[in-house]
Design a protein around this nucleic acid. Structure first.
Lengths: 307, 307
DNA sequence: GATGATGATTAGCACAGCTTATAGTTCATG
DNA sequence: CATGAACTATAAGCTGTGCTAATCATCATC
């Protein structure tokens, strides 16, 4: 009593039903389906055997056949079924074209703030039905592990110890810059040494990004004075805007459209990060699409930055 | 570019997809489907060839297979398609059980008033989703022609000249009765001769039913005095109720639940009609169901009538 | 009654799809 | 590191399905 007595039903039968109903004769239906009249006759006969009901009245002679009541009922269902198959077909084509599908992407704070929204925004313009699911991980290795597990399609990463089975696409270097209030004296660059004597805004002590900044400053013999720490990049920027201090942030995490802040090159620079995408095996077309856009976006962001 | 590149897709492939996704291994899926593992493996391989995409990740070893992104997409469509097939199956079963379907039934006034509503009402209790479409025809021959044409499934009829190809089911005799106000003097029968001297309510002169009444009265040498004529059976009955006169009607057209009128046998009777159903070729189960109920209803109506 | 348009039937053939049997792959385990 | 367990893939062979081609049967129309 599983698939029960319709187990022999196949799409071919429903297509024949629909074609004959539409064309009125077996012969014309056969022509549109690319079969011979005999084949369609046998297909309809098979359908009638399967449902154990006459589906068409054949008046004989040159008059067109007509659906029986059962036939009409079956036809309405056939239209539904075949319609679903068509939409499967359509969505499959869209999937292959990279304009539909789902992307589970691993992100972290500094990249989630700006790069991911830009990529997603541009992707949605080209392919509105794509379903992007960012997953914020605790660190690189966590995300890379999930990519290897197939639980993510791809992930942003700054480290360099990658799983050799995973494809890696380099996006851009991500220099550390100083974020200062717009009315801060000075030009587009700022002396690293000067940072020892000003108030600074930073992220929590154990943040991977922050640790890199502190290491860079320590190497230059500088002991920064953090007056406020927060894990929220936007909050950091707000504090700078309010004149509370200066922040050192990765360029890709700064909201460059804020007119009340200015971005300054560090002199000398702190060793920068390299931003990459780690891509799982057999990436889907839409994942590839995401990668392409991410590369494009990063190139633009770095190119237009005033550093 | 007609059915395009999914032309080889069959329900079997979608069933295999669903089963493997549900069971986690090809072997268990095969068991639930009643195939060997090899068959399911080949079915999935065929599906992957058809869509030209890997549908499952096979990690190897004892770990279960997992859907790829395309696989997930295909599965959601497969569920839709197979769900539609199931509902086709369900409705087909209901059709065969006579509890769903459509009935186009030919009716005429005297039967439309009472018998048809009773039959439809009872049918709807047993099979609420049946779609009954009464069609009121001008006369018997008209309706019978439509039944023969398959434009009606069945029709009520009072004549006797039927198409030999059509099945005829006798419902009951339908005696003519006198309808009098409840306070009318006398008992359950009324003398035909007495009708020559009272006011009468009738139907239009050329109504088939009325002509039969008039012929019966003429045979008895009676010239009735019609003070009002209307084609509407309910209006006739209202006039009787108002005391305007007496009506002669077929029993099956009288609303017996009206406490303000009384039904009287005619002495001697006028030749009665025979009510039948004319049934088209290959009646559907629900049509048969309708017939059964009609027989039942007519038997009850005649049995409980006070004549 | 001949004619033409149509569906049904038959025979034959090719191939799809199943089963059985076996090989290949991966992970766990001693 | 070899071995076994739990899978899937593949090969070979056979059966039955489903197609084509050709022919027959049926019914309106002229």
């Amino acid at each position: 009593m599983n698939s029960s007595y319709l187990g022999d039903l196949e799409l071919r039968h429903l297509e024949a039903l629909r074609a004959v109903a539409a064309e009125g004769t077996f012969g014309r239906a056969a022509a549109t389906l690319g079969y011979t009249q005999s084949a369609v006759s046998q297909q309809v006969a098979a359908l009638e055997r399967i449902v154990n009901e006459k589906v068409f009245d054949r008046p004989g002679g040159p008059r067109p056949v007509q659906l029986t009541p059962v036939g009409r009922m079956l036809l309405s269902h056939a239209d539904e079924v075949l319609g679903r198959v068509s939409s499967l077909e359509r969505e499959l084509a869209e999937f292959k074209a990279g304009i539909t599908g789902r992307i589970d992407v691993g992100v972290f704070q500094s990249v989630a703030v700006k790069v991911v929204p830009m990529v997603v925004g541009r992707l949605r313009q080209e392919a509105p039905r794509v379903d992007v699911r960012p997953f914020e991980g605790v660190d690189d290795q966590h995300l890379i592990g999930m990519v290897a597990d197939r639980r993510l399609d791809l992930a942003f990463a700054v480290g360099s110890a990658f799983d050799p089975r995973l494809q890696v696409v380099h996006l851009s270097h991500d220099p550390f810059v100083a974020v200062v209030p717009a009315d801060h004296p000075g030009g587009d660059s700022i002396s690293l040494r000067g940072l020892g004597v000003v108030s600074m805004i930073g992220q929590p002590v154990h943040d991977t990004c922050q640790m890199k900044v502190d290491a860079g400053l320590a190497d230059a013999g500088i002991a920064p004075d953090y007056v406020f720490r927060t894990a929220d990049n936007a909050a950091v920027q707000s504090m700078v805007r309010a004149g509370m201090g200066i922040a050192i942030m990765p360029l890709l995490a700064v909201d460059g459209n804020d007119p009340e802040i200015r971005i300054c090159r560090l002199e000398p620079p702190i060793p920068h990060r390299e931003l990459s995408l780690v891509i799982g095996p057999d990436p889907s077309p839409v994942t590839q699409h995401f990668v392409d856009i991410a590369v494009e976006v990063c190139r633009e962001v770095v190119a237009t930055a005033p550093v």
